[in-house]
Design a protein around this nucleic acid. Structure first.
Length: 485
RNA sequence: GGCGCUAUCGUCUAGGGGUUAGGACGUCAGAUUCUCAAUCUGAAAACCCGGGUUCGAUUCCCGGUAGCGCUACCA
């Protein structure tokens, strides 16, 4: 196979959607697998809906996902001459003709057809105007759109890499608009013109374009140009099987980033939405994906986006991430939450690293470091009411925690074994199960009912903090007891 | 409405004319324990319906149904 060229062509009318991200990923994987070229093109011909800031956001999301492009971004809004040239070419060869029907007239006809339950298709009013009539109307200054002349018989067929052979009767296709009356190209014209100009070999895009493809095939043929290979991707749906949209919650790549999802987890998850690697292994490195990805193995049915599985996958990545790679991400997360302490990169570096290492074993998203793990990075944390209700029930707890604090303060060395012995001895003296003290102390030290093993927590926090926090918890209990009685 | 596409556990999927229909997430139970994860063990859970072809269809064909997509001077 000669040099492969693929493109991802988002339109800046929204943030990068997970569906778009998967399309970009499949294009990228195919390009990388075959040492081809991955091109980025921004489809911003709809001036009303396109927003330049969104282009920036889309580019950032792609970079964050690690989907680097080799060419572009090309902006369609800057390539209008190309589309007009193609339009002229089609008009000269008789494959396109000017249409003077106003959008208003057409809307009326379409609506009437609808109430009468007739299928509507452009009726060809301007299809066979004589050249004289055309120039007369032009001379009058009547605005004209340019329409493609679809053959009125025959069928148009093509082979889709994913869906197999697709065939459509030409009579089902209307004479679609190529150039709007203001001279702006429509999607059909600009994609074909660009894909031709950029020598795109494989058009990989959402299945919502499957029905449009015959129109584009017709254009390639009218231009006498070689057709690219098409591969359409099944759509991503929400839990209700409707196309995934904002009302299902987070749909943009940026939203998952904010939720503490790692880009490698998101791409891995997305890769599996519609594709299974031959190895059957679900957790795949980028290299493994590149080595195994094949458009021909993509599923044809739509897939429901399952955030639960994404979270699971994220926790897999998080737990296996080498510490040196995790550290900067946690740092960024703490910055975002206003919890970053400059000492973490200086005097308290070791404690910071120990904390991250400890929290890592049970983190599901980066947010877990700043939320449930908050007490590891700041003194500004509170005792979770539910945790208190569950583990601070013993009436003598305040005294026990004070005593524990006193003993731990003089413990040496302050290590895993020593702290555990110390606590268990106290529990025995007080005639209480060690678990009672352990759970109570966990709430005192972390504010949470759920946290890593207590003695790991102690050693990580350090002797002074542990003693202080136990005292603080004891004081808190005494206060709430006297207030309550 | 017309046209197109799709249909295996709740979800993502493997498979394919004869299989105990496999895996993953999730769920449930047990082990472990210091809470929660992790880990280990086990369990429940699927071939949309109807015809046809065939010795035999979940698999192939046809029809139905359902879902999705397209049906713009949006992309």
């Amino acid at each position: 196979m000669s040099q492969l060229r693929l493109r991802f062509a988002p339109s800046p009318t929204g943030y990068l959607h997970v569906g778009g991200a998967r399309t970009a990923l499949y294009n990228w994987l195919t390009a990388r697998r075959h040492a081809g070229t991955f091109i980025l093109r921004i489809e911003d011909t709809d001036a009303d809906r396109s927003q330049p800031e969104l282009t920036t956001a889309i580019l950032e999301s792609l970079q964050w996902l690690g989907l680097d492009w080799d060419e572009g971004p090309y902006y369609q809004s800057q390539r209008l001459e190309l589309y007009r040239a193609r339009a002229q070419e089609l008009e000269r060869s008789g494959h396109a003709y000017p249409c003077f029907c106003s959008p208003e007239e057409l809307r009326v006809k379409r609506e009437r057809a609808e109430v009468e339950h007739r299928a509507w298709k452009y009726d060809g009013t301007c299809r066979n105007l004589s050249p004289a009539e055309q120039s007369r109307r032009r001379a009058e200054g009547r605005p004209a759109a340019l329409r493609f002349r679809v053959p009125d018989s025959g069928r148009t067929a093509f082979e889709d890499l994913v869906f197999g052979s697709i065939e459509l009767a030409n009579s089902e296709i209307e004479d679609f608009v190529l150039l709007r009356s203001d001279g702006q190209p429509t999607y059909h014209l600009s994609v074909v013109a660009d894909d031709l100009d950029l020598r795109v070999s494989h058009v990989v895009r959402g299945a919502d374009h499957l029905s449009n493809t015959p129109k584009q095939i017709l254009m390639y043929r009218a231009l006498g140009a070689p057709e690219p290979i098409f591969a359409h991707l099944p759509l991503i749906l929400g839990p209700d099987k409707q196309r995934l949209s904002k009302r299902h919650g987070a749909t943009s790549v940026g939203a998952y980033r904010e939720q503490g999802i790692l880009p490698e987890a998101l791409t891995n998850f997305l890769a599996l939405l519609g594709w299974t690697p031959p190895s059957g292994k679900e957790i795949l490195s980028r290299e493994e994906m590149v080595a195994q990805f094949d458009l021909k193995a993509v599923s044809r049915s739509n897939a429901v986006f399952d955030p639960e599985k994404l979270t699971w996958m994220n926790s897999e990545y998080l737990r296996h991430l080498p510490l040196e790679k995790l550290l900067p991400r946690v740092e960024a997360q703490l910055h975002a939450e206003g919890l970053w302490n400059p000492a973490f990169s200086q005097a308290e570096r070791e404690r910071f690293e120990d904390s991250v290492r400890l929290l890592q074993t049970r983190a599901r998203t980066l947010k877990d470091f700043s939320h449930s793990g908050r007490a590891f990075f700041t003194e500004d944390f509170s005792f979770d009411p539910e945790a208190r209700a569950k583990f601070w029930k013993e009436p003598h707890l305040a005294d026990w925690l004070s005593e524990l604090a006193r003993r731990l303060r003089s413990l040496s060395p302050f290590d895993l074994e020593g702290t555990e012995k110390c606590l268990r001895a106290l529990a025995e003296e007080k005639g209480v199960r060690a678990g009672v003290l352990i759970n109570a102390a966990r709430v005192a030290l972390t504010g949470q009912a759920v946290a890593p093993g207590l003695f790991d927590v102690m050693v990580t926090l350090g002797q002074d903090r542990v003693a202080q926090r136990l005292e603080r918890a004891a004081a808190f209990q005494r206060q709430s007891q006297s207030a309550g009685s």
